[in-house]
């Protein structure tokens, strides 16, 4: 059913069931997100996408709130901007964002976030975990967006090797009893890595290059091809730097994989080296 609502200064039409974010995006109104992804169920935990909806006392998360007829939505009011700025300050003052997606760093700029105001505050401390030759988990970069948990769990892989453990500021991503990854349920599909927005989870090949200062996304080309292993036909995006494949991902908008791969698809390319 088609309905009408107001987003900022425009009356727009939408389908029942659309989220505010969907409709806004369709009408060219960009709402920042961090924990949202096209191939995951919205968990609305980062609260970066909050918008003002007339009649609602708290702000509402645009990523998950379905539109209603005659809704009046403000996506960029002072209240909205203050909340976004604070969310960014809170995150940036507690975790290391220097390897985050460029969009997040741009938002810190755009909203005038000044994380240094909380410079004396607690930060997330965690030693880098490298327990095998494929993954690096650097949880001092983790913003607890839940994406990895969702990708490992019921949004894709159904392996559930990781979960959020603990509570409050101490909440963290963990295997049971912090079991080393190779001994956990992990099957190294890397679907967690694929959705991590902050560089907390990276393939070892990328981590090593980053540590050496040799990770140069601006010099990488991406070529789409099909995985060489089983007969499913997963699309692979080969990220090539200096004539070498350095990482493999899958397009989130392709209906075979929805961005997901298995260990062979994501890491099997290393036989090329």
């Amino acid at each position: 059913m088609t309905i009408e609502l107001r987003i900022d200064d425009a009356i727009v039409t939408a389908e029942q069931g659309d989220t505010i974010r969907d409709v806004a995006a369709r009408h060219g109104v960009e709402i920042p997100t961090l924990c949202w992804a096209a191939n995951l169920t919205p968990v609305n935990v980062c609260r970066l996408c909050v918008v003002e909806v007339e009649g609602s006392r708290p702000l509402v998360p645009a990523c998950s709130r379905p539109v209603e007829a005659d809704m009046v939505v403000s996506t960029n009011s002072h209240r909205v901007r203050t909340s976004r700025r604070m969310v960014l300050e809170l995150l940036a003052s507690s975790v290391d964002l220097d390897r985050a997606e460029p969009e997040l760093l741009d938002q810190i700029e755009e909203y005038g976030a000044r994380p240094e105001r909380f410079a004396a505050g607690a930060t997330k401390h965690a030693p880098v975990k490298q327990q095998d030759e494929l993954y690096v988990r650097d949880y001092q970069r983790c913003v607890l967006c839940y994406k990895c948990v969702e990708a490992c769990g019921d949004d894709a892989q159904h392996t559930f090797a990781i979960s959020v453990a603990g509570r409050g500021f101490d909440a963290h991503i963990s295997t049971e009893f912090d079991t080393a990854l190779p001994d956990s349920a992990c099957v190294y599909c890397g679907n967690c890595i694929a959705v991590c927005p902050t560089g907390a989870l990276t393939p070892l090949t990328e981590f090593v290059r980053r540590e050496a200062g040799e990770w140069r996304p601006d010099q990488q080309s991406v070529t789409r091809t099909v995985c060489a292993f089983c007969g499913v036909g997963c699309n692979l995006d080969l990220h090539v730097q200096d004539g070498e494949v350095v990482k493999v991902t899958s397009p989130a908008d392709h209906d075979i994989t929805q961005g997901n791969l298995c260990i062979k698809g994501r890491f099997g390319w290393q036989h090329l080296r």
């Binding site: 609305n44 935990v45 980062c46 609260r47 970066l48 909340s83 604070m86 969310v87 809170l90 995150l91 003052s93 507690s94 909380f118 004396a120 505050g121 607690a122 913003v143 607890l144 959020v164 603990g166 509570r167 409050g168 500021f169 101490d170 909440a171």
Partner: peptide
């Protein structure tokens, strides 16, 4: 509140922690 925050959303997870820190200064 910092102790009892579930830790799910950023405003509360980090905000309650920061509130304690500011009040303790």
């Amino acid at each position: 509140f910092a102790h009892e925050s579930c830790g799910q959303c950023v405003p509360c997870r980090v905000g309650t922690q920061r509130q304690v820190e500011v009040l303790t200064s």
